[in-house]
C-alpha cells in the first residue's frame, strides 16, 4: 500500500532561487574592471549633470582681467575668452548636453522600437505604410536636415533638441527591430501564444519585447553617444541657441578664436573634447555588461 504523498507546496529551495536583477547586474558589472570603470564614468557624468549646476550661480561670472587664464586653484581648467572658469562651464553645460542626448536616445528607441515591432508583427498594409515612412526617414540626410530645422526651431530646451534628434534618428533601429520581430514571430513559443488565444499586445509586450531587449538596450546607449555627437556638432557649426557653457559652443569659439595656437588657452578647447571622449568611453565600456545583464545566454556561470 502506498502512502499518499502530500502535494508539494513548498518554495524553491534557496540554492535554486533566481537571482534578482540587481544581483545579476552587480555580478555582470564587477566581472570585468573595464565595466566598473565604464559605470563609474557614466555615474560621474550623470551626477555632474544633476547636481553640478547647483554649485554655481545661474549666470557664470566673467572677468576681463583673466581672459584665457592658465590653470590655477581658482580655475583648475583655466578660463575662457571672457574670463569665465572653464570647469564651471563644463559642469553647468553638462546638464543640457547629457539630458538632450539621453532624451534623444529615449525618443530614438521609443519611435524605432514601436515602429519596428508593430511593422514586423502585424505585416500587411501596416508594415507597408510604416516601412515606407521609415524609408523616407532613412533617405533624408539627418545632419543637414537638423541644420535646416535649426533655422526654424530654437532648440532652447533639451527636450526640443532630444525630440528632434529622436525624430530624425529612428529609421535604422526600426528596420533592425522589424527584422528581429519577423524572425521571432515564426518561432514556436509565439505560435503557441497565438494558439492559446493571447492578445497581440500581450504577445508583443510579454513575448517579443523581452527577447529583443538586449538589442534595444545596446542601441539605447549607443544612441546617447550619437545624440551627443549630433547636438555638439550642431552647436559647433554655430547653428545654435547660444549658450556659452555648451560644450559644442565652447569648441566652436575655441577653434575660431585660435585657442589651439595659444598654449594658455589649450584647456578651453581640450576640456569639452575630453568630456565627450570620456562619456563615449564610459558607454562603450558598459555596453557588454548591459548585454550580459539582459541576455541570459551570455551570463557566465
Amino acid at each position: 500500500m502506498s502512502q499518499a504523498t502530500a502535494p508539494y507546496l513548498g518554495t524553491v529551495p534557496p540554492e535554486f532561487r533566481r537571482p534578482s536583477l540587481w544581483t545579476i547586474s552587480w555580478r555582470a558589472i564587477t566581472r570585468k574592471p573595464s565595466r566598473v570603470i565604464g559605470i563609474v564614468i557614466i555615474l560621474f557624468f550623470t551626477l555632474m549633470a544633476i547636481f553640478g549646476p547647483m554649485l554655481y550661480p545661474k549666470q557664470l561670472p566673467i572677468n576681463p582681467a583673466e581672459l584665457y587664464a592658465p590653470p590655477s586653484w581658482a580655475h583648475p581648467l583655466g578660463t575662457d575668452f571672457e574670463g569665465t572658469s572653464v570647469l564651471a562651464e563644463i559642469i553647468t553645460g553638462s546638464r543640457y548636453v547629457l539630458s538632450a542626448a539621453a532624451l534623444a536616445a529615449v525618443f530614438t528607441i521609443g519611435f524605432g522600437t514601436l515602429a519596428g515591432v508593430v511593422s514586423g508583427y502585424f505585416l500587411g498594409s501596416t508594415d507597408q505604410i510604416i516601412m515606407r515612412v521609415t524609408d523616407f526617414i532613412l533617405t533624408i540626410p539627418g545632419f543637414p536636415l537638423l541644420i535646416v530645422l535649426s533655422t526654424i526651431w530654437s532648440f532652447g530646451s533639451p527636450i526640443a533638441m532630444g525630440l528632434v534628434l529622436g525624430l530624425t534618428g529612428w529609421g535604422g533601429l526600426a528596420r533592425a527591430v522589424r527584422s528581429q520581430t519577423l524572425s521571432l514571430r515564426e518561432r514556436g513559443f509565439i505560435e503557441a501564444a497565438r494558439g492559446l488565444g493571447l492578445s497581440n499586445s500581450h504577445i508583443i509586450t510579454r513575448e517579443i519585447l523581452p527577447n529583443i531587449s538586449p538589442y534595444i538596450a545596446m542601441n539605447l546607449l549607443l544612441s546617447v553617444t550619437g545624440g551627443i555627437y549630433a547636438e555638439v556638432g550642431l552647436f559647433f557649426l554655430g547653428v545654435i541657441p547660444f549658450q556659452s557653457n555648451n560644450w559644442g559652443v565652447m569648441l566652436n569659439l575655441a577653434f575660431s578664436n585660435g585657442a589651439m595656437y595659444t598654449p594658455q588657452s589649450l584647456l578651453y578647447m581640450v576640456s569639452p573634447m575630453a568630456c565627450i571622449l570620456l562619456v563615449t568611453f564610459g558607454i562603450v565600456l558598459t555596453l557588454d555588461a548591459f548585454d550580459e545583464i539582459l541576455n541570459p545566454r551570455l551570463r557566465e556561470g
Partner: peptide, 15 residues
C-alpha cells in the same frame, strides 16, 4: 554665426 566678436560681445552683455 561666425561673427565671433559680436557673439562674444553678446555673451558679455548677456552676463
Amino acid at each position: 554665426s561666425g561673427f565671433n566678436d559680436w557673439i562674444e560681445a553678446g555673451s558679455v552683455m548677456e552676463s
